[in-house]
Each structure stands twice: as structure tokens, then as C-alpha cells.
């Protein structure tokens, strides 16, 4: 983790009709950081990611990534800047094989045009092989070699989550947005996933912005944590600071606070 700011969210407001999804949210994500966003259901965590992806446009405020104001860009251009994403409810291309799902994410890196592809001549076939090599490395890394050719629609949930992580990696992102990558998994699958996330972070130096509900896990792997509640940022700090922050405890447990909740990472 360095101090250079990669992504800065500045005073973002977002409302759907009368519902204020995000209210004056500001934070920075530094390069090579592993930052977690936590908060109760409906706190605006996924809305925040959707704003970064430029899928939602903030009503006020700016989101700047490497000097680009993301709100001005169409969603697909954001991917070209190097921001990849996984989804809370798996959003894979269910009709394609695992391999093609990953290859589809190489879209932004492929250079050959429509005509070269249609004739499968020269550059097209050469590039296909080059990108296949990159994708195979990711398949090796995530240990999904055995399902390479399987259609995604036929895979079990845990593997799909892993394939989705693979698809995001195939984009070779500088900033990886993970929306509840461990939701609905058993302990073993969660540990695998945590290992993959840490490896991506440490070996490839990818900045990771993580949303997760499993507090124990967040406190273990995150370097910094941001807490949202009803669209407002109520706390920011290291896991230890967050654990003892009275506002956070209040948000999770209601008015009567004082005792540290058992599920907040104290083991």
C-alpha cells in the first residue's frame, strides 16, 4: 500500500426518487490498497460500486480515477480504464463455457477488428492465442482447469463465484471491485476465496475494493475499512479502529451499545 491516491470519491450524492441512497460520501482509495466497505443491508454499498462503474450517475459530487471523472464516461469506457467488477448476484454469461467467459473479458485488450475476426485471418488468430495464454494463467491460478470447457450455467454456486472472479481478473484490472465475493459460501469456500483475494492483492498488486458481510473475514484481510449506514459514511479506519467505534456498533446493534458484538471479528 502506498499513499498515492488512485480513486477519489468526492462528496457523492445519489437519490432514487425520494430515497437517498448515498449522501455526501467521500473517501480515497490508495494504490495497491485492500479497502473494505461494510454496512447493514441497504446502506448503499452496491450503489457506491455502481457509481464507480458509472452505471449510476451521482446527482452531485465527482469520482476521479487516474485523472478521469468517471461520471462523464459511459460504463464500458470505465472498464477500459482498468476497473473490473464482480457482482453480488452472480452475473456470468451462463450460455458460454468458463473459458469463453474469461475470453469475453479480454474484449478490452483485443485489437483486431470485425473484418479480421470474420475472416479469422492473420492477426485475429494470432491474438486469440496470445489472449488464450493469459486466460489460461488465470485458470491455473484459480484452480478451475477441470471446468475450463464446462458451460457456466451447469456449474455449482461456489465455482461460479470463482469463475466470476476469474472473469474480472481477465480484464487485468488496476482496481478490482468485489461485491460480496463470499456471500452464501461455506467456510472452506470462503477461505479459498480469501486466499485468492489476498494473492491477487499481494502478488499482482491490484487495488481491491471489497464489500463483504462476514465481519471476521473483513477484519482479517482488509487494510482499511469504510462503514456506510443509510447512505452516510459513518466511520473510516483500520479494522481495529472500526471494531471499537461506537457509531459502528450503534449502526449494527441499535441504540443500546456498549458491548462489543461477538461477530465483529473478536475471536
Amino acid at each position: 500500500m502506498s499513499d498515492a491516491v488512485q480513486l477519489s470519491v468526492e462528496n457523492v450524492h445519489l437519490a432514487f426518487g425520494g430515497t437517498q441512497a448515498l449522501f455526501d460520501v467521500s473517501f480515497n482509495v490508495c494504490e495497491r490498497e485492500l479497502l473494505a466497505i461494510i454496512g447493514p443491508n441497504g446502506a448503499g454499498k452496491t450503489s457506491m460500486l455502481n457509481c464507480i462503474n458509472s452505471f449510476y450517475r451521482p446527482d452531485k459530487g465527482r469520482i476521479v480515477f487516474k485523472g478521469n471523472d468517471l461520471a462523464r464516461l459511459p460504463s464500458h469506457r470505465v472498464a477500459y480504464l482498468g476497473i473490473a467488477r464482480t457482482f453480488q448476484n452472480i452475473a456470468l454469461y451462463t450460455g458460454m463455457s468458463v473459458l469463453n467467459n474469461l475470453m469475453a473479458a479480454r474484449h478490452v485488450h483485443m485489437k483486431y477488428g470485425m473484418l479480421a475476426g470474420a475472416l479469422y485471418f492473420g492477426r485475429a488468430s494470432k491474438e486469440e492465442v496470445e489472449h488464450r495464454i493469459v486466460v489460461e494463467e488465470i485458470i491455473d491460478f484459480l484452480e478451475i482447469e477441470h471446468i475450463r470447457k464446462a458451460v457456466v450455467g451447469a456449474l455449482p454456486y461456489g465455482l461460479r463465484k470463482r469463475v466470476e472472479l476469474g472473469r474480472a481478473l481477465a480484464l487485468e484490472p488496476e482496481l478490482l471491485l468485489l461485491d460480496e465475493p463470499m456471500a452464501g459460501m461455506n467456510l472452506e469456500e470462503k477461505e479459498d476465496m480469501a486466499r485468492f483475494i489476498l494473492d491477487i492483492h499481494e502478488l499482482q498488486g491490484t487495488t481491491i475494493l471489497l464489500i463483504e458481510h462476514d465481519m471476521g473475514l473483513v477484519m482479517d484481510i482488509a487494510e482499511r475499512v469504510i462503514v456506510l449506514d443509510f447512505g452516510i459514511k459513518i466511520a473510516e479506519g483500520t479494522p481495529d479502529e472500526i471494531k471499537n467505534n461506537p457509531k459502528v456498533i450503534q449502526a449494527y446493534l441499535g441504540e443500546e451499545f456498549g458491548a462489543i458484538p461477538t461477530d465483529m471479528g473478536s475471536e
Binding site: 452475473a91 458460454m96 474480472a168
Partner: peptide, 18 residues
């Protein structure tokens, strides 16, 4: 692949650069 991506999940396709 971009075509099938749009068919199977247009939101994901868009956010991944299509």
C-alpha cells in the same frame, strides 16, 4: 463473444467493456 455476453447478461457485458 461480445454478442453472447449481451444476450446472457447485458449489465455485466457493459461493465466489462462491451
Amino acid at each position: 463473444r461480445a454478442f453472447v455476453a449481451i444476450r446472457d447478461n447485458d449489465l455485466a457485458a457493459e461493465l466489462l467493456g462491451v
